[in-house]
Design a protein around this nucleic acid. Structure first.
Lengths: 211, 211
DNA sequence: ACCATTACTGACTGAATAGTCATTAAGATA
DNA sequence: TATCTTAATGACTATTCAGTCAGTAATGGT
């Protein structure tokens, strides 16, 4: 083999294990940026550094790609999140603050946050997936808030509160921040500081909940 | 003309004035249900009771149809909303409650609410329109909250609050409710009662803001 | 060094749909 | 009633893109 031939790099590599997650990651980015229908699979493949044919080696269709992203993206993260909250032993006010902060750090600030935007946008086109997301992510997320509120009421720290709608209200500002960062924030809107925003939210919330 | 001929109805009617709003309304419904890219103009025309050709008599392109919906849909409603809030004379806590309630009644509960879902979904594909919506709707909407909070601080009713992020937090639960009703609510998720939800929100919020 | 296996490629096909325009008919005018 | 204007139609075109598959080349085994 000549010295020259040695520097010729292979046109592509075999990376069977890494492809699915790289493709899913590229697809999530583009779906969030452009929407599901407006995203071309050629572009997804390109961003993942492969050809469209390769994408079809790992995912059966565009729909299945989307479903895989939602199903495998968030639920695993959720498990450790739930763990962490259940084992907390401080005051309920501090638990509420920790809850918001951890949610933001582990999900909100990552690109997983885009999944919520995607699901809101596409719920009408994927009712079955929307049901799954609702049951496995939203309901479970709200349940964590519900438990935290109940705990505060039981301990006498919080005043009695309705428990079906209140968790939604606790979560709304965090969710809005996630959506904001994946929509208007990208389009030259004035930036928001997540740190400040979430501090004010938890402050307002805890004052509202306390006796 | 024979007796029979008299009952033959015209295949279509000339309704030059009514078409644009009927087409825009049909398009808004479908864009919100399915997303912009996934909506076929044949379906929009069908829902408005005309053919696709007619749609092109009134709108230059699919993009322009979308822009017209956003530009002409919300801003007019906003003007009267701002009026109403500026002329209020009661307590700041009551103003805050009225603000949320009126927003919900005049926009949130109508199908105009879908525009916010649409803009969040499509901000990446229509950066110019997103900027317009941001400046003309979001910033102006937040400004109303800002004025209400400032008023409460000045009168000594509310404690001093940061004024850039706080309006976002006041608005987030209302916006989330609007989004919810145009996504998961349609897909068999457990219903939420807007009345109860908004009462709890304003209650929590006002308690959080008061001295 | 050669072969066998298979991950990967990219040109191709068929379906779907944005946008056009020659034709039709509603309904105003005289 | 006959004529004229133009709102409305729907078949058509050009393009875009999801999904396919015969061929190519990376790599592990012998």
């Amino acid at each position: 083999m000549s010295v020259l031939a040695k520097v010729i790099e292979p046109r592509w590599e075999r990376r069977k294990d890494a492809r699915p997650s790289e493709l899913a990651s590229a697809a999530l980015e583009l779906f969030v940026e452009r929407g599901f229908a407006a995203t071309r699979l050629d572009d997804v493949a390109k961003r993942a550094g492969v050809s469209k044919g390769t994408l079809y080696l790992y995912f059966d269709s565009k729909d299945e790609l989307f479903k895989a992203i939602v199903r495998e993206g968030i639920v695993p993260r959720f498990v450790e999140f739930e763990e962490r909250m259940r084992s907390y032993e401080g005051s309920s006010a501090d638990l509420m603050r920790l809850l918001v902060k951890t949610w933001w750090q582990k999900i909100g600030a990552t690109k997983l946050a885009g999944i919520s935007k995607l699901m809101i946008s596409e719920a009408g086109n994927f009712p079955e997936l929307a049901k799954f997301y609702h049951d496995e992510v939203i309901v479970r997320g709200l349940a964590i808030f519900k438990v935290a509120i109940q705990r505060g009421i039981d301990s006498g720290e919080f005043r009695p509160m309705e428990l079906e709608h209140t968790p939604h209200i606790c979560a709304a500002p965090v969710l809005m921040l996630m959506l904001w960062r994946n929509s208007f924030d990208l389009c030259g809107a004035q930036g928001m500081d997540p740190e400040t925003y979430l501090d004010i939210h938890t402050d307002l919330l805890v004052r509202g909940l306390l006796k």
